[in-house]
Write a protein that binds this DNA or RNA. Structure first.
Lengths: 141, 141
DNA sequence: ATACAGGATGGAGTAAACTCCAAGTCAAGG
DNA sequence: CCTTGACTTGGAGTTTACTCCATCCTGTAT
């Protein structure tokens, strides 16, 4: 499979693919006699792995580390599993943060919907006494 | 509240806080006579907003845009709601990608657990016929 | 034979989001 | 009065992850 085909398949640029190879996020790709990259099934597998991890926000460096372990053979099963477990924990944390932000957004969007209806923005906690009349200065954040 | 206190409260550096202010991710912070930042409750609210969004992977530029709308007053309620809705969609997509990667990881980790038990890595799809004996060259990705 | 599309390479450039630094200011303690 | 520590500013530097470019090579179609 040519670099172009791989690019089309994964909606990624040839530069990115070559970059991944250069830094070791995927192993050295199979070549034709004339030096043109010819991706094998294994190469594709590595590419897919790199793309999946990156899409999930895993730093390239982690992908590189995983790829390095893979190259080292069967003695690294434990290390690889541990790395993937660490990645999993990272991703879980990322999801949590995003979920928390979703809740916050939901709340704010709801407030805005009401504000758009009534023309005024109201908050759960009323303004501290003494500042109540300075409504203008209290912009929503 | 001093910059230091805000930093400690949100585990963020003073440089980042000043950076947010400079680029407009938070509005200009209240100052003492001598020019030292003295964060009011409103300032803190803006800081918290910026940090929450950033933690959820929202680009600074979006936070800046939201802050700009807030500064413009009540006419921007719709625009703000729409922006927050767009942010929500972005975050949902991010979560989906991460969730998909979690599944993939779960599968791989499971495989490795088995491989560590048996000392050998097995895959759902067996090797293509004719390459079966080159086990060594077929590294997991 | 030659033009050309597609690919290779090494290195430079870019965007985003900080992060660091030098030089200056200021309030409070000794 | 002087030192110290916390803060200020403007600007430069860093990191990550690409992305672009100039130049060179080569298999294929005219």
């Amino acid at each position: 499979m040519t670099i172009k085909e791989v690019c089309e398949r994964y909606h990624i640029s040839p530069d990115t693919l070559r970059y991944y190879e250069r830094v070791g996020a995927i192993p050295a790709v199979n070549r034709t006699k004339s030096g043109v990259r010819d991706y094998t099934e294994q190469d594709i597998g590595a590419v897919e792995n790199a793309i999946c991890m990156r899409d999930a926000g895993v730093p390239v460096e982690m992908v590189v580390e995983y790829t390095r372990l893979c190259r080292q053979g069967d003695e690294t099963f434990c290390a690889r599993r541990d790395l993937l477990k660490a990645v999993r924990e990272d991703i879980l944390k990322q999801i949590e943060k995003r979920q928390k932000e979703l809740e916050r957004l939901e709340y704010k969007i709801g407030r805005y919907e009401i504000a758009i209806e009534t023309g005024e923005l109201s908050w759960e906690k009323p303004l501290p006494a003494g500042e109540a009349e300075e409504k203008e200065s209290r912009e929503i954040t």
